[in-house]
């Protein structure tokens, strides 16, 4: 149980997707202009990360890893498909996002209209693919851990984008040097927030 809590807290604060790995920066900068849309996108990211990570974990463990196909027949034990992981992960993510989009469109048109624009964008959000690649690199020991990691990083990303949107809403009224307005200041603020988040480093549970 401690393991799960540790992974969860670590992926939200210590190894925050935005502040320590710069993942998902494109949509983070583009959509953080107001809190409401930022919340919508953040929730969608939590959802997609939480589901695709365990799915990709299962794919990696039972299909792609060196010797993973041994459960099919012993003669396949020497097969190593891990070079295919990028293409398999991205296909999985893109397919999942497409399916979710279709489901939401059919069953909840209200949610679709508020979230719909962001859903297809999520397929190319680096945080999602990055999550799967980190999961592979760190070698989590079971699906539960992969799920916890996915959920935690999603929540970390959500926190980052909502905080940023709140700051940018206030900034709209302040008087900043003209060339710095907008993008330049957004970068610098993200950097400062990153420094603040670094105080979580070395956090042990």
């Amino acid at each position: 149980m401690m393991d799960y809590i540790n992974i969860f807290i670590k992926s939200i604060f210590v190894e925050n997707m935005v502040f320590s790995f710069f993942l998902g920066m494109c949509s983070y900068l583009a959509v953080s202009k107001n809190v409401k849309t930022a919340t919508g996108l953040g929730l969608a990211v939590i959802f997609v990360l939480g589901i695709t990570l365990p799915l990709n974990y299962v794919l990696y463990e039972y299909v792609l890893k060196a010797g993973a196909l041994a459960w099919l027949s012993p003669s396949l034990a020497s097969v190593d498909l891990s070079f295919l992981s990028y293409i398999v992960y991205i296909a999985m993510i893109a397919t999942f996002v497409q399916i979710v989009e279709m489901f939401v469109e059919k069953f909840s048109p209200g949610l679709y209209s508020s979230l719909g624009i962001f859903l297809p964008l999520i397929a190319v959000n680096c945080a999602i693919l990055g999550g799967s690649l980190f999961m592979q690199e760190r070698g989590y020991s079971n699906v539960g851990e992969a799920f916890t990691f996915g959920l935690g990083s999603g929540i970390g990303w959500f926190l980052a984008i909502v905080a940023m949107a709140a700051i940018r809403e206030k900034l709209a009224y302040s008087n900043v040097p003209k060339p710095l307005k907008g993008l330049g200041l957004a970068f610098i603020i993200t950097g400062l927030m990153g420094i603040a988040f670094m105080s979580f480093m070395g956090f042990q549970l």
């Binding site: 710069f22 003209k178 060339p179 710095l180 610098i188 950097g191 990153g194």
Partner: peptide, 17 residues
């Protein structure tokens, strides 16, 4: 440290603009 990359990038944008 990672955050400095962002701050430097902010400065690059500043100079460019």
């Amino acid at each position: 440290l990672p955050p400095m990359a962002l701050i430097l990038l902010g400065c690059v944008v500043w100079v460019h603009r």
